[in-house]
């Protein structure tokens, strides 16, 4: 760790981050997790920064988490959501960001339905860009908070067996997690209906199974994904009930395989990817994930706030 220097300017995806970069973010997250336990859970570190949250897609928890992280660090925050903005009047992403850029901003957090939107913004404004989800490409802060939650629970990531269950094709959370987890030496299994499994997924270095029991049998952590109704073009499975029967994690699985913990990026469809009792079970780390998400985002904002910008 001695000579290591964090040299990233943006967070567009974990594909651009080395294992050392990811470890550094997780290490710094620990210090922010401690701040959240203080009687006054605030630091003034970003008090001279202005941050724009540019959300072209609906989001509740990611946007709130980012905004709270920004306020906890004293930044000035501007929120932009496509539904209530000039986008409705036909303004392009480029024009929007250029206009916002003229207002002297330091960082942009962006969520957009097009893969590569965050990367595109780096060419339009001199601010640090953080990707909060771009289409089915990446959602790096979600993967970082998942990894941090695993790190806190197990004390390590290397060698952990993580099974990810659900719609592998349409999930940016999966992509970021596969990239991040394998970089840190975890063994990843993906599991879901054949219609939701992208071709050549093995090339990402993961094991593939279409059998939930097979995925859960020897795993340390199971990550259930939300079935995203908004990204389904056609019917990829016959019914929600049938999905639950074959790929939903139920109490039976917790009893049968007594060791694994459960992660879920939220929001949960109870009775679909998780049986309701499973979502509330002590082995579910889901609410820890939310708190950890705040600390991870504070760490990312902090690490990308350096350097003087013009």
């Amino acid at each position: 760790m001695g000579d290591y220097v964090f040299n990233q300017r943006h967070l567009l995806g974990l594909a651009d981050y080395s294992a050392a970069d990811i470890r550094h973010v997780l290490e710094q997250t620990r210090t922010f997790r401690e701040i959240l336990e203080r009687p006054v859970p605030k630091v003034p570190t970003l008090r001279d920064k202005t941050i724009v949250n540019l959300f072209y897609e609906n989001s509740t928890r990611t946007r709130i988490s980012f905004e709270l992280a920004q306020r906890r660090m004293g930044a000035d925050v501007v929120n932009f959501s496509a539904a209530t903005s000039s986008t409705k009047k036909g303004e392009s992403l480029k024009d929007t960001i250029r206009n916002i850029g003229s207002m002297k901003i330091d960082m942009v957090v962006v969520r957009h339905e097009s893969p590569g939107a965050a990367h595109f913004l780096t060419k339009c404004v001199p601010a640090a860009i953080i990707n909060a989800g771009d289409g089915a490409h990446e959602h790096p802060t979600q993967a970082l908070l998942d990894m941090y939650s695993l790190l806190v629970h197990f004390g390590r990531i290397e060698g952990l067996r993580v099974s990810i269950i659900g719609d592998i094709t349409h999930s940016r959370v999966v992509r970021s997690n596969i990239i991040g987890l394998t970089k840190l030496g975890a063994k990843v299994t993906v599991c879901g209906p054949k219609t939701m499994m992208p071709p050549f997924v093995e090339e990402l270095g993961v094991r593939v199974t279409y059998d939930l029991d097979e995925a859960l049998r020897d795993c340390d952590a199971a990550m259930a994904l939300r079935i995203q109704m908004e990204r389904q073009d056609g019917a990829l499975f016959p019914s929600l009930r049938e999905y639950h029967e074959r790929f939903g994690i139920r109490m039976r699985h917790l009893e049968q395989y007594p060791d694994f913990v459960i992660l879920h990026p939220g929001p949960i469809n109870r009775g679909v990817e998780l049986q309701s009792e499973v979502a509330d079970h002590p082995r579910a780390l889901i609410l820890d994930q939310v708190t950890n998400g705040l600390a991870v985002r504070m760490a990312v904002l902090y690490l990308l706030s350096g350097g003087s910008r013009v």
């Binding site: 964090f6 550094h24 210090t31 401690e34 902090y302 690490l303 350096g306 350097g307």
Partner: peptide
């Protein structure tokens, strides 16, 4: 130029 690495409190 670079943000300093924070230590634990």
């Amino acid at each position: 130029d670079k943000v300093p690495t924070a230590k634990i409190t």
